[in-house]
Design a protein around this nucleic acid. Structure first.
Lengths: 245, 245
DNA sequence: TCAACTTGTCTAATGAACTAGACAACTTAG
DNA sequence: CTAAGTTGTCTAGTTCATTAGACAAGTTGA
């Protein structure tokens, strides 16, 4: 509502003004207020709107151009150069790639690795195990049209599914692996959603600008009898993705 | 995984190192890794862990102390002084105050005001109206134990419910108003969840530190025949709240 | 061609953010 | 009491963020 002080208090916030302007402009784009090809307001007008200097606005636009969100042409202006946010569908039968069906022409999942580890308190609680129990951990990054769109970690109890890692190396599909291990079907039992800043590893793997915001989805999949079989922690860049329940 | 460069590149990010440290420590607290009363690592150890100077860590801790998240005592250390995140339940029959039942002793909703306006493109699309149609807009802030935990805006078509604003002024309950207008029941038809930085108005109303992250939930409620009757946009501070589907 | 409007580049000054080192003040365990 | 470990405070220097103003260079339409 109020336009003045829209982006002041830079000292108190610890977030640079140019970054807040970049975030605001990006939000108009991924939120749908500006479509691909649309012309942005001029640098002078943006500077007035945000109560900042033109140089500060320029730095914000440069950051957006580096991200590939806009394109700037001397003498003409800046133009939107990216599409809307992708929607990831979450439901009772959430499976990889179904959630993004139709929104990207090429979907790929990169497996970073599997390993055996001892369950942390939260993993143990989600899977109904004692803290420290052996679990198989699977780390992946998903890409839509070559762009990383999610970083996921899954945990499966080792006692119930000792062959999970070995089979996954061949099948490359959680659904197929569970099917081969006697779990014909499974459904999403619960989902918790939160948001936070990306850490250094996530920033690198998802190719984000440092300080980017992640949507975090924590879910437990259960078999037909309601027994938890898989605990998953997925992280989505909030600029690129939204979750649809 | 990698510990070095954990919080470097401050120039590229536009987010101050002290703020990123504060966010990381707060995440350990609201995420449950540290419980109320626990002692944080010493300033020197934290400085090593984040690859930053002790003064920078001190600034982060001062910000957290100002938020009321920790308490620092000379010669002793810093101690956790706040609880875990609240969970807001989202389901087919999401009603205010049910979502937070049992997690706070006092729940209150402050009505900022109602007004008549012309539907924006997104509001019109959600309610199945033509763009620019008259809609009643309701703005609220919800508080749990006196602390603001959500900022919500709702839109209701004026043509279908011309008396909405007048009745709401008396009833103060959406469910009761709809009941009085002949809608005995309604369910959540769809929910979209995203995340972004808070703007100036949200920062003020929710009493946040500038640059805070919001979880944004966008939902459409429909009557028993599936006709959309209400479009709602709720914003939750990501530090305080998580959404449970 | 010209005038108006756009982005690109340069210089300069101020304040915030970060680092470095040293020492004071306080708490705790021995 | 003492030593070790903790937070509090000071000085000083470097780099980044932001503002201000001026002018160059490209685009557009009259």
């Amino acid at each position: 509502m109020t336009k003045v002080t829209a982006v002041s208090d830079s000292h108190l916030s610890g977030v640079a003004i140019w970054r807040r302007i970049a975030d605001a402009v990006r939000l108009d784009i991924v939120g749908g207020k500006l479509a691909r090809g649309d012309k942005l307001a001029g640098e002078v007008e943006l500077a007035e709107r945000f109560g900042a200097n033109r140089h500060t606005v320029r730095r914000a636009l440069q950051a957006l151009a580096a991200e590939g969100v806009i394109r700037t042409e001397q003498g003409r202006g800046s133009f939107v150069d990216s599409a809307k946010r992708l929607s990831y569908r979450i439901g009772k039968r959430t499976r990889f790639s179904e959630g993004l069906a139709g929104q990207a022409s090429e979907l790929r999942r990169q497996v970073l690795g599997t390993r055996l580890e001892n369950a942390s308190a939260s993993v143990a609680a989600a899977l109904g195990l004692v803290s420290g129990a052996k679990v198989t951990r699977l780390d992946t990054v998903s890409l839509a049209d070559g762009r990383p769109v999610s970083r996921a970690t899954s945990w499966v109890g080792y006692r119930d599914f000792p062959e999970f890692a070995a089979r996954f190396a061949e099948e490359q599909s959680t659904t197929a692996v569970f099917a081969g291990l006697g779990v014909s079907d499974y459904v999403r039992a619960s989902t918790r959603i939160s948001a936070r800043h990306a850490d250094a590893e996530e920033t690198a793997l998802l190719k984000l600008a440092p300080g980017a915001i992640l949507l975090v989805s924590e879910g437990v999949d259960a078999d037909v009898d309601g027994r938890p079989i898989l605990y998953g922690l997925s992280r989505f860049p909030a600029d690129l993705m939204e979750l649809v329940v």
